[in-house]
Design a protein around this nucleic acid. Sequence first.
DNA 1: TCGCGCCGAACGATCGTTCGGTGGGTAGAG
DNA 2: CTCTACCCACCGAACGATCGTTCGGCGCGA
Lengths: 208, 208
Amino acid sequence: MSAARDVVTSPDGATRRPGRAEPYTFDSLVEVAARAFLERGYDATSMEDLSRAAGITKSSFYHHVSGKEALLRGALDRALDGLFGVLAEPRALEGPPVARLRHIVRRQVEVLGTELPYVTLLLRLRGNTETERWALGRRREFDQAVAALVREATDAGATRPDLDPVVAARLLSGTVNSLIEWYRPERLALADLVDAVERQVFDGLLGG
Amino acid sequence: MSAARDVVTSPDGATRRPGRAEPYTFDSLVEVAARAFLERGYDATSMEDLSRAAGITKSSFYHHVSGKEALLRGALDRALDGLFGVLAEPRALEGPPVARLRHIVRRQVEVLGTELPYVTLLLRLRGNTETERWALGRRREFDQAVAALVREATDAGATRPDLDPVVAARLLSGTVNSLIEWYRPERLALADLVDAVERQVFDGLLGG
DNA sequence: TCGCGCCGAACGATCGTTCGGTGGGTAGAG
DNA sequence: CTCTACCCACCGAACGATCGTTCGGCGCGA
């Protein structure tokens, strides 16, 4: 549908224009798959659907991809890389807890917006296969890192005292993650969304 | 697993004790199904899984239920009845907008807690079948009613002026709905959850 | 001539659903 | 009370459809 590179550099270093059409890289097929999974759900999307969306037959599709679960794994990798990349940023590691939390929330919203189909896939997992359980484990790591930061801010007296840090962290993550249910980049600029989420999460509907 | 009534009144009015075991009513099987859908997802749950969870064979299961989609429909009905029941309550219809919104949020959290499997099913729909699209339509009605109330509160000057009512309503619904991803009644009393959600939604992490 | 991208056809497995039959409890007639 | 006809919850087996996946071959560019 998009993102068609004109030229691809082969492993041997030479540039080429293979066959008749643009080459199907693994990543480009993961993109197609994630977009289809986003609409219909992983289980309800057949390999026939995916290959048709990619513009080739089902058997041709298998020439590029080892199987359905590999596509899922590829998409989940991309989502998790984005999220954990945020945790590794300097502003997420230095400064007072609330400032670090602010930065993580803002950047997490940005990742959700830019990697929407991939993160959506991650957040809808049910843990039915080994791959799904692995991704759920990594996602839990991320949530616990945020929860630890909320607790740190609470201990420092930076948040209101009548909030349980654990519940507060769950609600925080839930608010941010719920963006995938309705946010579409063409309807609202990502920068505006980031500001809106920060305001509402930290100061509430009524304002501070 | 539970909810086994001792006696069933037949359509003819007489009370009886059928067969050998407790009777399988449609509603009790919907409960079993919703619980299984909650764990594995609708598509990933087979009729074999459901009948085994109910303690009878697949063909016996079909003696009580017309099909898989009927189970989904039954569960979605229950979720939607609970949600729209909240909108019809007197305190949701009378008083200043913010007070009505407060009441709806509190009661919506309660419905999510008591009807957890059913509401979860509703919130995970992708719209693949006619039944799913119907339920998504009704769910949109509910969300729009809440959004209209947020706009009303904004127009009355009750919320902070720098919030877009549409985005604020989405984030509000997202926060409440995200409860299904982690809330388990045995871990946290529902009354405590209701208070925590109200505080955090209206006054934010930092407090008002 | 070789290889790679692509394709049609078919594989076994599993899906939701249907069908014919069985066994035990109930109701009604004698 | 006894006999009998019936009903209904239940079951095993199989249906067609669709799933993810595999295989052998074809055609074009290098």
